[in-house]
């Protein structure tokens, strides 16, 4: 039996997440792993939007901010359970993405990049300045999810690091599975067709604006859930999560790993999350090396690391 690329990607992902802890020398690596998964989840959303629908968003951190602050504020102000707050944040992000995307995505070209940039900055400003609600730039505490205690009562005692490693790992597998399913669905094929040629897609009768809007809304939900997981894990959140730099970071991770493939996005997130930890030995040269790595990848592996490597491997087989 030959595995489809979809099952192969998911199998490798599950195996990596499950087996990696065997090699962890200390509890710190669970934390880094959990961060990789949280970032990879947001980047998977970018892959759907940019890799498949061909649209660029420079404000996705805004959705992460909404997801994060939903978990910080909803439990305190409305008594909503943190787990449900994740859904509330996702719903709010989806509605906002729909409102912003609906007029913008009727236009052809890169208008979404500019509109989303403005939206991201606005969200970040609101989080910074509405001090009565968000406690401003110094940040705000986030309630405990409480699931770890439930698991402990059920006889499954995990350290905080382990718990978040596996929870974020599961979230990523579910996110990747959904994205890969979407890719193989009629909608996914239509998205990639419009990426190839918007004119051709329109000619064969596709509702191009609606498809792009769907992709934007879906990717906003990914970013929002990723922000929620980060907030619940850190138990403390500042408006930095919605900052412009975080938006750029998401796009960079996707492009570095390979924006056209889910595996590529995840790989890019892993590389850019792990490298700064590895490069701490270089102290002030850290940023320099990070920049050099990115430039080299873009010159020699233009489609991103994973797709370019796969292509090279395939060519060798032939």
């Amino acid at each position: 039996m030959r595995l489809t690329p979809k099952s192969a990607t998911l199998l490798i992902l599950v195996a990596l997440i499950a087996l990696a802890p065997v090699f962890f020398p200390s509890g710190f690596y669970y934390r880094v792993g959990a961060l990789v998964f949280v970032n990879a989840l947001a980047v998977t959303g970018i892959v759907i939007l940019t890799g498949w629908a061909g649209q660029i968003s420079l404000g996705h951190a805004g959705f992460a901010g909404i997801g994060a602050y939903a978990c910080a504020l909803a439990p305190v102000h409305w008594g909503i359970h943190p787990a449900l707050s994740v859904l509330l944040g996702a719903a709010a992000s989806a509605v906002l993405a729909w409102l912003v995307g609906r007029p913008i995505l009727r236009l052809k070209g890169y208008y979404l990049a500019v509109a989303s940039l403005g939206m991201g900055i606005l969200i970040s400003m609101v989080l910074n300045n509405e001090r009565a609600l968000t406690r401003g730039p110094d940040g705000i505490g986030v309630p405990e999810l409480g699931l770890r205690a439930v698991l402990k009562d059920a006889g499954l005692g995990l350290s905080n690091g382990q718990f978040w490693y596996f929870l974020c790992g599961i979230a990523l597998v579910v996110g990747a599975w959904a994205a890969l399913n979407l890719r193989d669905s009629a909608t996914g094929r239509a998205l990639r067709a419009l990426h190839g040629s918007e004119v051709a897609a329109r000619t064969v009768g596709m509702d191009v604006a609606r498809l792009k809007l769907q992709a934007f809304v879906i990717s906003a939900v990914y970013a929002s859930v990723s922000g929620s997981l980060l907030a619940l894990q850190n138990r403390f959140i500042t408006p930095d999560v919605a900052g412009f730099l975080h938006s750029v970071e998401m796009v960079t991770m996707a492009v570095l790993g390979g924006v056209g493939s889910v595996a590529g996005g995840i790989f890019g997130a892993a590389v850019l999350t792990l490298l700064p930890q590895v490069l701490t030995v270089l102290a002030e040269y850290e940023q320099l090396v990070l920049g050099a790595v990115m430039v080299l990848v873009m010159i020699f592996l233009r489609e991103g690391i994973v797709p370019s490597m796969l292509r090279k491997g395939r060519r060798r087989e032939e």
């Binding site: 934390r31 980060l230 403390f236 959140i237 930095d240 999560v241 701490t280």
Partner: peptide, 21 residues
């Protein structure tokens, strides 16, 4: 010593690294 660049998320990671690793 680690440089967290003023990012609370990084600071949390480095604090974990300092204690665990």
């Amino acid at each position: 010593a680690y440089d967290d660049g003023g990012d609370p998320n990084k600071a949390r990671t480095f604090a974990t690294r300092l204690i665990e690793d």
